[in-house]
């Protein structure tokens, strides 16, 4: 899922300072699960803005609400009437949600309340870890379920490199130990009884599907709805 983190309140206060009517809109999918941008967090942020404005003696009309997904037009339609009463929407969704709102609400200011961080998973309660960079050309079949693009700091396809020591990457520090992705791959193969797979040479990766060619788009003619047909 998409992992986000609320922006520092100071930044939010600063960016919303000129608005008198603010709608703080949560998103109940990925960012709600990572406890950054669901309804609870939207209410918390709205309350913080309201209190700050009272401290500054600059009253604000503020409301917190949420929709199931800000990244789909169908769900954004649900709040079309509500947003008319506000000068700005502070979106607690990921960058995808913010941009979908902006696209759907062209005459409304839409601001981000989160810093979208990465695609990842909850390692344990309160800890989230990146494990996919959406490179567009998955190599997990060649590395047996552990992504070297994300988990190896150099994203090398034939590892480990000389910087791997006792299972840790050379960029590890005392406070931030980073597992060597290729060590993890080796350990996984050991469990599967297939260490010899480490000898396979993974060919050069086709990066043309990655971000370097600008925003990517997928078109599926079989599921497109053509009006009038």
């Amino acid at each position: 899922m998409i992992i986000g983190e609320r922006k520092p309140l100071e930044e939010i206060f600063d960016r919303t300072a000129s608005f008198k009517k603010i709608l703080v809109l949560g998103c109940e999918t990925c960012v709600a699960v990572c406890l950054a941008g669901g309804k609870k967090e939207a209410e918390e942020t709205a309350s913080s803005i309201s209190l700050h404005r009272k401290e500054e003696s600059k009253p604000v009309e503020i409301k917190a609400d949420s929709i199931q997904r800000q990244c789909e037009y169908e769900f954004v339609d649900e709040i079309a009437d509500l947003v008319k009463d506000y000068d700005v929407v502070l979106s607690m969704a990921c960058g995808v949600g913010v941009q979908t709102l902006a696209e759907k609400l062209p005459d409304k200011f839409v601001l981000p309340g989160l810093n979208t961080q990465f695609l990842g998973f909850p390692l344990e309660q309160g800890v989230w870890m990146e494990n996919c960079q959406a490179c567009g050309n998955c190599v997990l079949d060649m590395t047996y379920g552990i992504c070297p693009i994300t988990r190896c700091s150099k994203s090398i396809l034939n590892g480990p490199c000389g910087g791997s020591s006792e299972g840790l990457c050379e960029i590890s520090t005392q406070d931030n130990e980073i597992a060597c992705g290729w060590h993890l791959i080796y350990e996984r193969l050991k469990v599967l009884g297939k260490q010899e797979y480490m000898n396979e040479v993974v060919p050069l990766k086709d990066w043309s599907s990655s971000f370097h060619g600008g925003p990517r788009k997928i078109v599926r003619e079989d599921v497109k709805i053509v009006r009038g047909e």
Binding site: K40, E43, E44, S47, S48, S50, L51, K54
Partner: peptide
């Protein structure tokens, strides 16, 4: 107790 409960009390 949620964060927002405490903030609401101040509000």
């Amino acid at each position: 107790i949620e964060h927002v409960h405490i903030l609401k009390a101040f509000e």
